[in-house]
């Protein structure tokens, strides 16, 4: 019997990474800016996205959304109220979306032709751990954090915040009653992801939305 070391050097998520690379080419060819929204459950991703879709449509942009949840199509129905095409992805127990799920749901989505879109939003499953490791081919990963969650969340989940391209603080309308320390939150985000754009928003009052929509428009011109 001989003992041998076999070098493999193979990424454990290689399959997902390959599929994500294909998706990235597909989005680019279609000219759609694709964003992946990630946060804990309850941060307000759906409310924020609904408002974003509504305002984009009102400005004449073409936007659609894929929304991931373990079960139910409640979020898809909420988002559809914006008027944008929305498709629910039920993961049935899986705590994140992966590139294969995105590809399959884009393939047979009759209501949406990627080439006709300006923006595609992917609302990930509420989870700050696993979605960080699964590339969906997106151009911009957005990490959301609400004022009710604690300013140290970026320090607790550095992997996700470090992989984000933009950060959104939600529910700013209740920041004061929650005793939210805005400076600490901004400092913590910056400590984990230096120089990242941070948007302070309220989906209820619309605060911060103009700045966010301007950022989207600029990003689209730059990338798509």
């Amino acid at each position: 019997m001989t003992t041998r070391i076999v070098e493999l050097r193979r990424g454990i998520l290689k399959k997902n990474d390959e599929l994500a690379a294909e998706l990235r080419l597909r989005y680019a060819a279609a000219g759609a800016l694709v964003l992946n929204l990630v946060s804990s459950p309850g941060t307000g991703k759906t409310a924020f996205l609904e408002r974003t879709l509504r305002e984009l449509l009102a400005r004449g942009s073409r936007a659609a959304a894929l929304v991931g949840d373990l079960e139910t199509d409640n979020d898809a129905r909420r988002l559809a109220a914006s008027g944008a095409p929305v498709r629910q992805i039920n993961t049935h127990g899986i705590c994140h979306l992966d590139a294969d799920m995105i590809g399959k749901h884009l393939d047979n989505w009759e209501a949406v032709d990627l080439a006709q879109l300006d923006y595609l939003f992917i609302e990930n499953v509420g989870n700050l751990v696993c979605p960080a490791s699964y590339d969906l081919g997106e151009k911009i990963r957005v990490a959301l954090l609400s004022v009710t969650e604690g300013e140290d969340k970026p320090l607790k989940y550095p992997t996700l915040f470090n992989s984000a391209d933009a950060a959104v603080i939600t529910k700013m309308d209740i920041a004061a009653p929650c005793g939210f320390d805005r400076e600490a939150a901004v400092r913590n985000i910056n400590e984990i992801r230096p120089g990242i754009r941070i948007f302070e928003t309220s989906s209820k009052t619309g605060a911060g939305m103009d700045e966010w929509l301007t950022y989207l428009a600029e990003a689209r011109l730059r990338h798509a």
Partner: peptide
């Protein structure tokens, strides 16, 4: 992973060169 600053000069840096690896390096058989 609590602060992305250079430990020598203290300046913030986001140019990651290592840290996201998740791979099978080798097997011994």
């Amino acid at each position: 992973v609590q602060s992305f600053r250079c430990p020598e000069c203290g300046v913030q840096a986001s140019d990651l060169r290592q840290g996201r690896e998740l791979e099978i390096e080798a097997i011994e058989i």
